[in-house]
């Protein structure tokens, strides 16, 4: 999480005044998280890199209009999130946010009840599991994936996430519940197979 207290008022003043060295420091400190957001949303390094560059080009241009009472990290992530969603829309019309609503509907399918928490830690963070985590996230609609990444991975609060995406806090909560339920379900199916000794895919 990039906390705003990490940036002093003096830092913000110089940033807004157009100090390139300070801007460089902002880029240095925030770009890994912005790139990770791009990877999560766009699924490949090339698009994530395009999104990363566009985000900071736009941010630098917009900095003179930054209102100092707001948070620099939510402001920056807002630009990044818009950029990612725009790239998604450009890439395939099927990924538009309207289309996305289809899996915002309540999912009433049965729950997988397997207690896989007891699996050894090294199994839970193995390369194969990491691939499954990515796969599970890719299965979410962009709208759910974005909320999950901002809230649960980047550590923004519900309020901040709502601000970044320009949606209501209730909408954030609803999407977060659905994202968490779907990811849990996907991983439960996978870990169940592993616990039953289904190692043929190893």
């Amino acid at each position: 999480m990039i906390a705003d207290q990490d940036f002093s008022p003096d830092f913000i003043d110089r940033l807004v005044a157009g100090d390139r060295r300070v801007f460089g420091e902002l880029v240095e400190r925030t770009s890994p998280k912005i790139f990770a957001l791009g990877l999560r949303m766009l699924g490949n390094e090339q698009d994530a890199e395009d999104m990363l560059q566009e985000t900071y080009l736009k941010a630098f241009k917009a900095l003179p209009n930054f209102e100092k009472r707001s948070s620099i990290s939510t402001w920056l992530f807002r630009i990044a999130a818009n950029e990612a969603l725009m790239l998604l829309r450009k890439r395939k019309s099927g990924a538009s946010l309207v289309e996305v609503e289809k899996d915002d509907e309540q999912d009433d399918s049965a729950l997988e009840i397997v207690d896989w928490c007891c699996l050894p830690e090294q199994e839970l963070v193995s390369t194969e599991t990491r691939e499954k985590l990515n796969e599970a996230a890719e299965n979410l609609s962009p709208a759910l994936r974005m909320v999950f990444q901002l809230r649960d991975v980047d550590g923004f609060s519900i309020t901040e996430t709502a601000e970044i995406l320009d949606i209501s806090e209730d909408a954030v909560k609803t999407r977060l519940v659905r994202a968490r339920m779907k990811l849990r379900e996907y991983l439960s199916v996978y870990f169940k197979e592993r616990m039953e000794g289904g190692n043929q895919h190893a």
Partner: peptide
């Protein structure tokens, strides 16, 4: 528990 663990893993 599995939902908590899911978030933790990410």
């Amino acid at each position: 528990n599995t939902m908590r663990k899911t978030i933790e893993l990410y």
